Amino acid sequence: MAKQILFVQGAGEGTHDSWDSKLVASLERELGEGYAIRYPRMPGEDDPSYPAWKTALLEEFDSLEDGAILVAHSFGGTILIHVLAEQPLELRVGGLFVIAAPFIGEGGWPSDDFDDFKDFSERLAPGVPVYLYHGTGDAEVPTAHVHLYAKAIPHAVVRTLERRDHQLNNDMSDVARDIRSVG
């Protein structure tokens, strides 16, 4: 049976179809057989609301099996980390892979929608491998954000990728290699 992957898109008008679909296609190519990627359209991608996306994610989690891999890009990663930190899951996650996520809180971006967690590692399920990726050429989210997450999730593996943009130049080979390494 194929290993399940849930890919959570970023925010912005047209992101699902015009931007993050390229990341999903690259990940599918890089992983090959043996992986099944779910790529749901998140509600209101052009004007995202944390409560709506949280509800959508919790519904998606219900359809996943233990060991499923969670991958998220940009604002989708921010929301995913906060949902996982807020609410323990019945699901045993096989790994968390977050790409170019804005950090909300001190040193990052302000938001009234999120709690300001200083230490996510105490709130995330123990033993879940966490990988954080950020391109050094990201013009959307400063690279400093990945270091803020690294401080809040000390056990995370951090990969800053040279000359890669917010979309990692639509090259998910590094992410695929790490996914294969955890399961």
Rank of each mutant, 00 (worst) to 15 (best):
V182P: 04
L96S: 07
P129D: 11
H145F: 00
P102R: 15
D112I: 01
P43L: 05
A36H: 15
E59N: 13
D174N: 05
A2K: 15
L84S: 03
V128L: 13
E90F: 08
R159N: 13
P102K: 07
S121W: 01
Q87F: 05
A150Y: 04
A125D: 14
Y35V: 03
D20V: 09
W109S: 01
R29W: 04
S21E: 13
I99H: 01
L23W: 03
V93I: 06
Q4L: 15
L64Q: 13
G95R: 03
G77A: 04
D20Y: 04
I179N: 10
H147P: 05
A176I: 04
F75Q: 02
E60G: 06
A52D: 07
E65R: 14
E60F: 00
I5R: 00
P51R: 06
P129G: 05
L91F: 07
P154F: 01
I79N: 06
R92L: 09
A176P: 11
S121L: 08
L31H: 12
A156S: 10
G108E: 06
G77C: 04
T78Q: 08
I69K: 02
L64M: 07
N169G: 10
A25H: 07
R41Y: 12
H16K: 09
I104P: 03
G12P: 01
A144M: 13
D119P: 03
L64D: 08
V141P: 04
A100L: 04
I37M: 06
A56D: 03
G107T: 09
E65C: 10
K151L: 11
D47N: 13
L89P: 00
K118E: 12
T136G: 12
L27E: 12
R163W: 10
K54I: 00
Y35G: 11
V71N: 08
H145Q: 05
R180D: 14
E28R: 15
D66K: 14
H73S: 14
G95Q: 09
D174R: 10
D17N: 10
L124C: 09
A25P: 12
G135L: 01
G95A: 03
G44C: 06
L6C: 13
D138V: 08
Y39I: 08
T143F: 01
Y149C: 02
I179T: 06
G94H: 05
L84Y: 12
A144L: 10
P129S: 02
S49Y: 06
T15M: 12
H166R: 11
L31Y: 11
P142L: 14
I104M: 04
A152C: 15
D115L: 09
W53G: 02
Y131H: 12
K22Y: 11
D171L: 04
L91E: 01
G77N: 05
L23M: 14
S121F: 04
I153H: 03
S18L: 15
V128S: 06
E122R: 09
A150N: 13
G10P: 01
A52V: 00
G14H: 15
V98N: 00
H73N: 10
F103M: 09
E28Q: 15
I81Y: 01
P88F: 05
L23Y: 11
F117P: 00
P43C: 07
A139K: 15
T160G: 02
G12I: 09
H145S: 08
E30Y: 14
L89I: 03
F120R: 05
L27V: 09
R164L: 09
